[in-house]
Structures are given as C-alpha cells and as structure tokens.
C-alpha cells in the first residue's frame, strides 16, 4: 500500500470523526443535519476504500440520502409545530460527567479492536465455495438473499413495521403547501425517468455486480420523494388498497416464497438450486417496489388523505 493511499485513508477516517463531532456539536440544527448528510457521503467513500461497494451504494442512498431527507422534513415540520423548539443549545445538566468514562471505555474498545486486527477470522472461503449454488454471482447479494436470507426477510418486515407504527401515530394532517414552481416540475420530468432507470439497473445488476433491492428501492424511493416535493400526490382512488398492496407486497411476497418452499418439504427459505436465481430476482423486485413506496410514504409523514374510514 502506497504512502498516498495510507494518507487518504487516515484523512478520511479523521474527517469522519470530525464531521460527526460537528454534526453533534454545532448549535444550529439545520447545519447539524447538513453536516450529518455530508458525514453519510464520507461514510460511502470509506466503504469504497474498504472494498465494500454494495455498502457504499446503500449508505449513499439510504444512510445519507433518505435519512437526510427524513431529518430535513422532520425539521421543517418541527419549525411549524414549535418554532422555538428548533434551537438545540439546550443540554442536559450533567453535560461533562460521562466524558471521562466514555474516553476510558473507548480506549478499552480500541485495544480490543487492535487485538483482533492482525488476523481477523471471516467467512470469505465458505461464501466463495458455495457461491456457485446461490443463484447469483455477487457474493454480497448471495449472503443477503440466500445464505442469510432469513435476516433480510426480518429486515424488510422491520421497514413495514416502522411504517405501520408511523401510521398508528398519525403524526399530523397532510400538508397543503404552495404549488411548486415550473422549474421543479420540469426538473422532475427530466429526472424521474433517469431515477427509475437507475433503480431498474441497480436491481438487475445486483445479481452479479454491486447493487440490489435495497439500493434500487432507495433510488426509486428518492424519485418518489422528489415527486412529493414537486407537489405530486397519489390519486385518491390509489391511496387505499393499491398503496397498501405496494407497501406489503415486498415482505408479503418474501413470506409467500417462504411458505411455498416450506410446503414442498424443504427447510425454511431453502431454494431449489435451479430456481434460486429466479426466486431471488422475484423477491428483490417485489422488495424494491415496497422499499420505494415505504420510504416515500415515510417521507410524506402521514397517511395519504383518502384512507378509507377505519
């Protein structure tokens, strides 16, 4: 490894810590969020340097992009609910008490990490050995959708749960904001097809190259967020069952695949090798739709208006 590369890595690592510190410490909340988004983008760079391009895509799209959008939207709503509440200079009384303790804990943790660095154990060999039977050639997708697909099933359910929880709280009535200018609308008409294509590419590529359902879903969700920003709303007749179907079909389809496999006498989520590739693509396509719909609806912050009376 060249000196230049070491320098870049050291700078990137320091930059991450510095940005995190500023995001947490700067007095203005808006700046804090912007710094947090910058932190997320720097994290994506760090993932690239760590040879984790799949994580880098997920971090940029979800960690920085959509989390940032959610934070900014929440801040805007907060401004309307409690204009004085966006000042963040209030601190708990015992501000300096835990600092020393934390530094000590951090030092202990650092030592433990250093002790593992020389020869960390991993599963590279096992993944490589079974990759041929997994139905895909991107090892990360193989782990996510096949070797540890059960984790992923639970994870798409976590996303669905978050949305149901948000709906059960009914944060506030839908916004009635001023119509966006023609510029945003035009921009959207140009960007939307690009984003949809990009999502489709990421979904397709995930089988053999960096990408996959989560990255694709996040990009498609970003398209939805842009559309919401431009003032587009779902037709009222689409906000009932059709919207719920879009949200549930990802986890629901995954569950149905699990049931079908179980009924054929296989263990939970064991794909027949010949069908593995096709099943993974099916699960990922449905998951992409649901992830996009869920993230966009979470961004909007409330149940779409025309929900049938419960």
């Amino acid at each position: 490894m060249s000196l230049l590369q070491t320098g870049i890595d050291a700078l990137l690592a320091l930059g991450l810590v510095w940005l995190a510190w500023r995001a947490l410490a700067c007095p203005d909340l808006f700046r804090g969020i912007v710094l947090f988004i910058a932190f997320g983008l720097l994290m994506a760079l760090a993932w690239v340097r760590l040879e984790a391009p799949d994580v880098a895509l997920a971090e940029a799209a979800i960690g920085a992009g959509l989390t940032g959008a959610l934070l900014l939207a929440a801040l805007a709503r907060l401004n309307r609910i409690a204009p004085a509440g966006t000042r963040a200079d209030t601190r708990e009384a015992w501000r300096n008490a835990p600092a020393l303790l934390l530094v000590l804990a951090g030092a202990g943790l650092g030592l433990a990490v250093l002790s593992l660095l020389p020869e960390p154990a991993g599963l590279q060999a096992q993944v490589a050995a079974e990759l041929g039977r997994s139905g895909v050639s991107n090892p990360v997708t193989a782990v996510l959708l096949n070797f540890r697909g059960y984790d992923t099933l639970l994870e798409v359910l976590v996303l669905l749960l978050a949305l149901l929880a948000a709906w059960s709280l009914e944060a506030e009535p839908p916004r009635r904001e001023a119509a966006p200018g023609p510029v945003l609308d035009l921009l959207l008409r140009l960007l939307l097809p690009v984003l949809v294509l990009a999502a489709a590419y990421l979904l397709w590529a995930g089988a053999h190259a960096p990408g996959g359902a989560f990255q694709a879903g996040a990009v498609l969700g970003a398209a939805g967020v842009l559309a919401l920003l431009a003032g587009w709303r779902l037709q009222p007749h689409l906000t009932g069952l059709p919207l719920r179907l879009a949200i549930v079909i990802g986890p629901g389809g995954f569950l149905l695949v699990a049931w079908a496999l179980l009924l054929t006498g296989r263990p939970l989520l064991e794909y027949p090798p010949a069908l593995a590739g096709a099943l993974i693509l099916l699960i990922e396509t449905l998951a992409t739709l649901s992830i996009a719909a869920t993230l966009a609806v979470l961004f909007q912050g409330s149940r779409p208006a025309a929900e049938p009376p419960a």
């Binding site: 359910l157 669905l160 069952l241 719920r244 949200i247 549930v248 986890p251 629901g252 569950l255 179980l262």
Partner: peptide, 22 residues
C-alpha cells in the same frame, strides 16, 4: 412438521395480512 419455522412465519404473515386488509 417444521414447528419452529411455522411459529415464526405464522404471526409475521398474519401481521402483513392484517396490514394489507385491515
């Protein structure tokens, strides 16, 4: 039967179905 798998899948499927059709 694969009781363990069923114990997990049944409530989670119920949750998804309940979300789809309140």
């Amino acid at each position: 039967l694969p009781w363990e798998a069923l114990l997990i899948l049944l409530p989670l499927t119920g949750a998804a179905a309940g979300a789809l059709w309140p």
